[in-house]
Amino acid sequence: MLYALCDNTMKNFFLSLKTTVWTLLALIGFFFIGSYMMPVHRDVFGPMSDLLLFQWIERFAAANPWQAWWFFASFAALVLLTINTIVCSIQAVIGRWTRRDFLLRIAPQVIHIGFLFILLAHLLGAGWGYRLSGFMPQGTLAQGLPEGRALHLVEVRIVTDEKGFPTDWSASVVLYENGVKVTSGVLGPNRPLFYNGMGVYLKNIDFSRGPAAILMVNRDPGAILALVGGLLFMLGSAMLLVLKWKKT
């Protein structure tokens, strides 16, 4: 009896739109606090985007709980929102269907799936993969990269306008795997080099001590999932927009 009562209360809680509304409000509050904590505690939050999120949690957030509490609270709110989204979507899908309201009922679920894919992508990217960056003078070789790879920076180039303002820059690189050349390319702003799920990025150039570049290699196993989630979100949103527009 008590079990059934608890079970029902739990089900109603996770099925409730009020849970969605209050969780969203709480999440907004935590992010609001976080946006003020981040610039104040740069020593804690500065490396947040340079490391994998789980690495950052282990090295910085766990050691500074008074500064990072809003992050853990946001994480808890996102977990609650995820359960709420899944339960509500399942309920909507297993409910009674009519031909007339099929699209109107499926569109929010497509949006929800897109949202869940994006969250899952963040989770995968937070814990798996790698992100390494470093300063490389022209002509040097960075060895010991993950998956037996090495990167050779062949040349750094900069293009300036007549006033000396840099208008473009690039870096030619060669990628090796187990000592064998596998690919090469020219990196630039918005022009990374991809090889088997790994991205090579030109973060910056530096001519102060001779031609050099700051390069980054990363593997984000969630990136494709995030893209699929984004596409699903756009598809569901477009469907919902057309249907609701007609209805109202």
């Binding site: 609001f32 976080g34 946006s35 981040m38 985007s49 963040h122 992100r131 973060k203 990363n218 990136a223």
Partner: peptide, 23 residues
């Protein structure tokens, strides 16, 4: 996010601007 992934190798960066955009 697509632009950020191509430019910085991450579709999401932890900065106050991104947090406020999410807000």
């Amino acid at each position: 996010g697509i632009w950020a992934h191509l430019a910085w190798g991450a579709y999401w960066l932890w900065t106050p601007k991104e947090l406020w955009t999410t807000i």
